[in-house]
C-alpha cells in the first residue's frame, strides 16, 4: 500500500441475491487523483462505489480509506447521486447547509461561497423541485462539498442531464476538483466524459467485475472540449472503446444466455 493512496479496494468480492457482482477486484486511488471507471452495464461499478461509501460491506476482502477499513457509512467519502437525492423539504441553501448543520456548525459565508462556485447564485431560497436537472446537480455537488469530504464519489452524476448542460457541468467539476484538491472516483458510460475528466481511466470487465485495464490519461489538466478533437484523443478513445466493446459483447452474451 503506497503512502499516497486514499482509497483502496483489497481483493474485494461482493455477492448479493445469488449473483457475484465483483470478484477479487483490486483498486487503488491516489491522493488528488481523478479516477474514472468505465464498463458495461451491470459490471459492478455502482456496487464498488457503494462499498467505498460504506452503504454495504464487502462479502470478502476489505475496502480502506487511508488505511482504515470502511465499516459504516463514511461521511468522509461524499457521494453525488445520479438522481440528485436532494431533500425536497429544504431550500437550496438549507440543502447545502445540511451537513454542517448536523454537526452544529453554522457558516453562512461558506455556503454563499459554495453557491457562487457552482454557479447558482440567486437560487438559494428556491425548493429543489423548482429547479431544472442541471441546477439540481449543482446543488447536489455543493451539498456534498459543504461537508468537506476527502473523497468525492460520483455515480454517473451527469447521466440525467441534457448534453449541453453536461458539458458545462463537466468543466465546472474539473475546475472544482482542481481548486479544492479533491480525490474523485467518477463512474460514467461516456468515453468522452472519461477522457475529459480523468487523470486515470479504469475499465472494468463484465460481471463479475474485475479491473480489465487501467491507463493513465495522456492529456493534461486543465482539459477542454477542444482537446477531444485532437488526434491523440481520438486514438485514446478508439483504444478504450475496443476494450470496453469486448466487455459489452460478453455481457450481452451472458444476459442472452441467462434469459
Amino acid at each position: 500500500m503506497s503512502a499516497a493512496a486514499v482509497l483502496q479496494a483489497d481483493c474485494v468480492t461482493h455477492r448479493y441475491g445469488g449473483i457475484t457482482a465483483l470478484r477479487q477486484i483490486d483498486l487503488t486511488i491516489a491522493e488528488r487523483e481523478f479516477l474514472v471507471m468505465l464498463g458495461p452495464s451491470g459490471c459492478g461499478k455502482s456496487t464498488l462505489l457503494n462499498l467505498f461509501a460504506g452503504f454495504e460491506q464487502p462479502s470478502e476482502g476489505r475496502v480502506l480509506l487511508r488505511g482504515d477499513p470502511i465499516a459504516k457509512v463514511e461521511p468522509r467519502c461524499g457521494v453525488v447521486f445520479q438522481n440528485y437525492a436532494l431533500f425536497p423539504w429544504l431550500t437550496v441553501a438549507q440543502n447545502i447547509a445540511f451537513g454542517p448543520s448536523i454537526k452544529g456548525i453554522r457558516s453562512p459565508e461558506k455556503i454563499a461561497n459554495l453557491i457562487r462556485s457552482v454557479g447558482i447564485e440567486g437560487f438559494g431560497d428556491l425548493y429543489p423541485n423548482q429547479l431544472s436537472g442541471g441546477m439540481k446537480q449543482r446543488v447536489a455537488l455543493a451539498r456534498t462539498l459543504a461537508n468537506d469530504p476527502e473523497v468525492l464519489l460520483c455515480d454517473e452524476p451527469f447521466a440525467a442531464v441534457d448534453a449541453m448542460t453536461r458539458q458545462v457541468l463537466q468543466e465546472e467539476l474539473s475546475r472544482i476538483a482542481t481548486s479544492e484538491a479533491k480525490t474523485v472516483l467518477f463512474i460514467t458510460h461516456s468515453i468522452d466524459e472519461a477522457i475529459l475528466l480523468a487523470d486515470r481511466i479504469v475499465v472494468l470487465s463484465s460481471r463479475p467485475g474485475r479491473v480489465k485495464e487501467s491507463l493513465p490519461n495522456p492529456l493534461q489538466r486543465p482539459r477542454t472540449q477542444n482537446m477531444l478533437l485532437e488526434p491523440e484523443s481520438r486514438e485514446l478513445k478508439q483504444y478504450i472503446w475496443r476494450k470496453v466493446r469486448e466487455e459489452v459483447l460478453m455481457s450481452l452474451q451472458d444476459s442472452s444466455r441467462a434469459s
Binding site: V73, P75, G78, V79, N83, G99, I102, T144, N147
Partner: peptide, 22 residues
Amino acid sequence: DPNLIRAALNLGVGPQDLLIRV
C-alpha cells in the same frame, strides 16, 4: 426514496436523527 436516506447518512446524520430529520 432510499437514496434520500443514503444521502443523509452520507452527510453524517446519525441513526437517531435519521427518523426526525429525514
